[in-house]
């Protein structure tokens, strides 16, 4: 499998002396499901946002689909962004619009400005939206307003919006951090399904180590802006977790062996 995304020696500095990312280096193959774990403030969100340039990295290079994202001009950047879907912790839907309108927002990047402004979508686009909403179990809710949905439903709309971009890759910024365990499982199952059946690469920030172990093909551990672990979930040891989360976390985090056994 060829590498779809390569992050080479990327650093990000906020202000004079806040280093959010320090020489981050990894690559992601097409179709892979990669989890990024690490304590709050370690730079997970910054890293994801550097990839689609919602945040500009200070140095290094990010190669997506053989192009360096950091060199792109405004117009090319928009084209690349349409190929990278993003899912957020707080869903980031437009509350006053319906489910289907929110989902169709994924199509805006591929439309002419005027059609997008007026919200004119073709029959094909609407049917595609219906298909995806159906696959995510939202078929009965398409005309409901986004703010009437539960958290899990909102997140599924967020995923539908990202999928309607026909993306090569999904960036998920803590997609289940605000959800109850039941809804979280539904969301993670959908993401896993998208990865295996649709062949879309998934890069997901997670807080829950057990979830990361269960779902991902590979885990990247980040602490203090640096990659401290990069490998298969099977090889993740207690020592690695201590390295990622610091020694204080040792007591809080369950027995890794137990998780592997289950």
């Amino acid at each position: 499998m060829a590498a779809l995304l390569e992050v080479n020696h990327v650093s990000k500095q906020f202000g004079k002396d806040t280093k959010a990312l320090k020489d981050v280096h990894f690559s992601v193959a097409e179709g892979e499901f990669v989890s990024i774990i690490g304590p709050s403030g370690a730079g997970k969100s910054t890293l994801l946002r550097c990839i689609n340039r919602m945040v500009d990295a200070t140095s290094g290079e990010i190669i997506f689909d053989n192009r360096n994202v950091l060199d792109l001009k405004k117009k090319e950047l928009k084209t690349i962004r349409t190929k990278i879907g993003m899912v957020f912790q707080h869903y980031n839907l437009v509350n006053r619009l319906s489910v289907i309108e929110n989902a169709l927002h994924g199509k805006l990047g591929n439309k002419s400005a005027l059609a997008g402004v007026l919200g004119l979508y073709s029959i094909d686009e609407k049917e595609e939206a219906m298909k995806i909403l159906n696959a995510l179990g939202l078929a009965d809710l398409i005309y409901k307003r986004a703010d009437q949905l539960s958290g899990g439903q909102k997140q599924r709309v967020g995923i539908a919006r990202a999928l309607l971009q026909n993306p090569r890759m999904l960036l998920c910024d803590e997609p289940i951090a605000s959800l109850d365990p039941g809804s979280a499982k539904v969301i993670m199952d959908h993401l896993k399904n998208i990865s295996t059946n649709w062949g879309i690469t998934i890069l997901v920030n997670l807080h829950q180590v057990d979830v990361a172990l269960k779902y991902s093909d590979r885990i990247i551990g980040i602490n203090n802006g640096q990659v401290v672990y990069n490998g298969s979930p099977k090889n993740l040891t207690k020592d690695d977790i201590q390295l990622i989360y610091g020694s204080e976390a040792e007591d809080l985090i369950f027995d890794v062996g137990g998780i592997h056994a289950s």
Partner: peptide
């Protein structure tokens, strides 16, 4: 959030 989401999807 909503603005960020649409920016990230390449909308103008």
């Amino acid at each position: 959030g909503a603005i960020e989401a649409l920016q990230a999807s390449g909308a103008n």
